[in-house]
Each structure stands twice: as structure tokens, then as C-alpha cells.
């Protein structure tokens, strides 16, 4: 599996490392010299109040800030030692290697099969129809959706329930066999039960992938994350083991946030 791929030659133990990244939208600075490391097979939560820049920072990890008009990113983001913002890097390749799941489920108005097969098709990751079918099945198995949809692969992806749609989108992302999966508040549009299913799934997927998940929900971070980063006003205030962040926060701002003084 991709999660087991060996570390890059430079000797870094990190899957991804963010070094001094600034993000500007026109004159406004949304992220201020952020430093962050993502280790293999861990779940890293980016937590913070609304507008703190956590989603913007997440989008730096697969260059999804590029299409936003007026966005400018400086600094280094290394994926297995290579800067994804280096001049000759094709952002499409970065996005294939670093999968992403949006806040609201966004399946294509196509069949369930075609939704999952979208990535493998555009990248040519299969030799024949049988192999494509196998990739689709594996990806759906991985999110536990297979048993629910195996008899209706030709139905529209948009006909599923909200929670199923979000799992479909996760399946679609991992069908590309990415090195990393980014999730931007993946449960904010779902009911509590579907949210719980997604959280469980995140834990399971962490066995093979490393996952960066954005959340404004402290309980969620506690439940799913190995490590948590706290962001405030565009700055990474504090990063550490989730338990340490919640039980012994080092920074005053973190304490205030955890104490519910702002959110």
C-alpha cells in the first residue's frame, strides 16, 4: 500500500513538512510563516476558531490555493523531501498524490462506479476493465461502502445519503492511491451518526495513509487525531500529541480556546 512507501533519500522521517509558509489573498495574510510536519501513518488535526486559516493551510498541502484568484503562497512544502511549489512541479500531479475530501460531499452526477473510476481514468492507472473494476471495489471496501452499494454501482452517486456520499468521496480520493489524504471538516455537513461513521473510518484509514484533518470541533480532534495543531489568526500556535495539547497546553491562546472563551 502507498502508506508503506519508504522515506525519500533526504533522510526526513516526515511524509510532508511545511516550512515558513505564508499565504496571501491580495493584501490579506491568511497564514503567517507556518511550520508543520506530518508523519507517516498518523492523523494530524488542524484545529482552531473560524477564520484562523486552517483550511487555507490545508489547501497549501495539495496546491488547491492555486485556482483561487489573488492567492499567493510563499515558503516550502516538502512532500517526501521534494518541494511541491518548485517551479517545474505540475500541480495536477501533486493533487493526485495528495488526495482531498471537501467539507460538503461533492460526488459527480455520474454513476457510483464512474465516480470512483474518475481518478484512475484520468491518470491511466489501469490496464483493462477488470483491473478498473478491482480498483473500484477495493476503494469502496476500504470505506465500508462496498456492501451498501455493490448492487447499484450504476446508480447516480448523488442518489446516496449524505454520509454515504462523503464516504464515496473518500473512496474516490483513495482510488488514486495517494500518499496523503486531506480532509476539510469532512463531517460538518453530516448528522451525528454519519459523522461517527466517518470518524471511525478516519481511524481505520490511518493504518495505511497519513491524514490531515481540519476541524473546529475539539471533541472530534480528541477522538481521531494522533497529533493536533492549534491555529489562531493565521499562526500555528502549538503542535503536539493530541493528549498533551488537550491536557497540558503550553500556550495561553490554546488554553483560552479549550476553555471555551472563544470559538
Amino acid at each position: 500500500m502507498p502508506g508503506e512507501s519508504k522515506d525519500h533519500g533526504s533522510g526526513t522521517a516526515e511524509k510532508m513538512s511545511v516550512r515558513g509558509v505564508d499565504v496571501f489573498f491580495h493584501e490579506f495574510q491568511a497564514v503567517k510563516s507556518a511550520d508543520l510536519k506530518v508523519h507517516p501513518r498518523e492523523v494530524l488535526a488542524l484545529m482552531g476558531p473560524s477564520g484562523c486559516g486552517k483550511s487555507t493551510l490545508l489547501r497549501c498541502l495539495n496546491r488547491m490555493n492555486d485556482p483561487i484568484p489573488g492567492a499567493r503562497v510563499t515558503g516550502e512544502v516538502l512532500l517526501e523531501g521534494d518541494d511541491i511549489y518548485a517551479p517545474r512541479v505540475d500541480p495536477a500531479k501533486v493533487r493526485a498524490r495528495v488526495g482531498m475530501v471537501s467539507q460538503a460531499p461533492n460526488p459527480f452526477p455520474k454513476s457510483i462506479f464512474d465516480n470512483i473510476a474518475f481518478g484512475p481514468r484520468i491518470h491511466g492507472f489501469y490496464k483493462d476493465r477488470a483491473e478498473l473494476a478491482r480498483i473500484v471495489e477495493e476503494s469502496l471496501q476500504r470505506t465500508g461502502l462496498w456492501d451498501e452499494v455493490k448492487d447499484k454501482l450504476n446508480q447516480a452517486g448523488t442518489s446516496l445519503s449524505g454520509g454515504q456520499q462523503q464516504r464515496l468521496c473518500i473512496s474516490r480520493a483513495i482510488a488514486n492511491r495517494p500518499d496523503l489524504v486531506l480532509m476539510d471538516e469532512p463531517t460538518s455537513a453530516l448528522d451525528p451518526k454519519a459523522s461517527a461513521t466517518i470518524e471511525e473510518l478516519v481511524r481505520e484509514l490511518a493504518e495505511d495513509f497519513c491524514i490531515v484533518i481540519v476541524t473546529h470541533n475539539m471533541e472530534q480532534a480528541q477522538r481521531v487525531a494522533d497529533r493536533t495543531a492549534f491555529l489562531y489568526l493565521g499562526e500555528v500556535v502549538e503542535v503536539g500529541e493530541t493528549r498533551q495539547i488537550f491536557e497540558a497546553p503550553q500556550h495561553g491562546r490554546t488554553k483560552e480556546f479549550l476553555g471555551g472563551q472563544f470559538s
Binding site: M64, F108, I122, A173
Partner: peptide, 17 residues
């Protein structure tokens, strides 16, 4: 909807795709 464009971009599709 823009969410569909975003979804395709997130999967590594080129502008043309």
C-alpha cells in the same frame, strides 16, 4: 456547480480534463 470543478481538481485532473 463549482464544487464539481473542485472535486475534479482535487483528484488531479488538468484544466482540460
Amino acid at each position: 456547480p463549482d464544487s464539481l470543478r473542485t472535486a475534479a481538481l482535487q483528484l488531479g485532473a488538468s484544466k482540460m480534463q
